[in-house]
């Protein structure tokens, strides 16, 4: 049952640790995103991060994750201030479409461009190194710490900014700080998990959790449980069936959301 863990640890231990750390952090970070009804923007930000990676690879720049972070941070800040008379969904749609096309165009002429593109866009969970896993753990600890210390204020700034202002918080500052930490998290996750699993862990656990629970207090627990369960199940099933674990985890999360949609209201936690 746990052969994937015991037998696979020497080969994939770093990948397991990185995926679990990010399966805690990404679902937590997804809660304010879902509170603002901006799941589409989450997808767009990941796409812009992939675009940043592509630029770094094409130009031979050091620290590709840094360029992904900058691309996501800039996109995230711009998304909070859409052009006049424009809705945030339009900006998110632009990011997804433009970012997707630009990533392919930038890498198209590169040696091994197709391979790099595949690694970036689809899941590459099993390729993590121990330094990468350590980075994922550090970012996850930062996200959990922010959630414990200021999670309520960050959520309030995203969900009910007028009330946040009345309570002496500065919604803009809080949103900016949260956006920068989200950009860092996404840049690290993109490198280790690929765009598909990163996006899925950001939005699907929180979307499922809000359908499965009746209390706000349950949201973080349900979201993290969904993320950890999907990643762990992904590794286990992938080992048994010789499948790519990232895609299995995404499929499990997709199935969970469908289950949450049909889950009877009276059974909700």
């Amino acid at each position: 049952m746990i052969e994937w863990l015991t037998a696979g640890w020497s080969l994939f231990g770093a990948s397991y640790v990185a995926a679990w750390a990010l399966a805690v952090a990404l679902p937590l970070a997804g809660i304010p995103v879902v509170a603002r009804e901006q799941a589409l923007l989450g997808v767009g930000l990941v796409q812009m991060g992939a675009c940043g990676f592509a630029v770094a690879i094409a130009c031979g720049l050091a620290w590709p994750s840094l360029w992904a972070f900058l691309a996501i941070a800039v996109a995230s800040v711009l998304a909070q201030r859409p052009p006049p008379r424009e809705r945030p969904e339009a900006v998110a749609a632009w990011m997804i479409l433009f970012g997707g096309a630009a990533t392919v165009l930038i890498l198209a002429g590169q040696p091994y461009g197709a391979e790099q593109l595949a690694r970036l866009t689809s899941s590459s969970v099993l390729g993590a190194s121990w330094p990468g896993a350590t980075g994922a753990l550090i970012v996850a600890v930062l996200v959990v710490a922010l959630a414990l210390v200021a999670g309520r204020r960050v959520l309030l700034a995203a969900w009910e900014p007028r009330l946040a202002r009345q309570q002496g918080a500065a919604p803009l500052v809080l949103s900016l700080a949260a956006a920068l930490l989200l950009a860092l998290l996404l840049a690290v996750a993109l490198k280790l998990l690929g765009a598909l699993l990163t996006t899925a862990l950001l939005v699907l656990p929180a979307l499922a959790a809000r359908r499965l629970g009746t209390r706000l207090a349950w949201m973080p627990w349900l979201s993290v449980a969904a993320g950890l369960g999907a990643v762990t199940g992904g590794f286990a099933i992938a080992w048994q069936a010789d499948l790519p674990p990232g895609q299995v985890a995404v499929a499990l999360l997709g199935g969970l959301l469908v289950l949450a949609w049909v889950w009877p209201r009276s059974w909700r936690a």
Binding site: I31, V34, A35, R36, E37, W159, E160, P161, R162, R210, G213, T214, R215, L216, W218, M219, R268
Partner: peptide
């Protein structure tokens, strides 16, 4: 101004 996006 609260939207019904999270359980409460």
């Amino acid at each position: 101004e609260l939207q019904p996006t999270l359980p409460l």
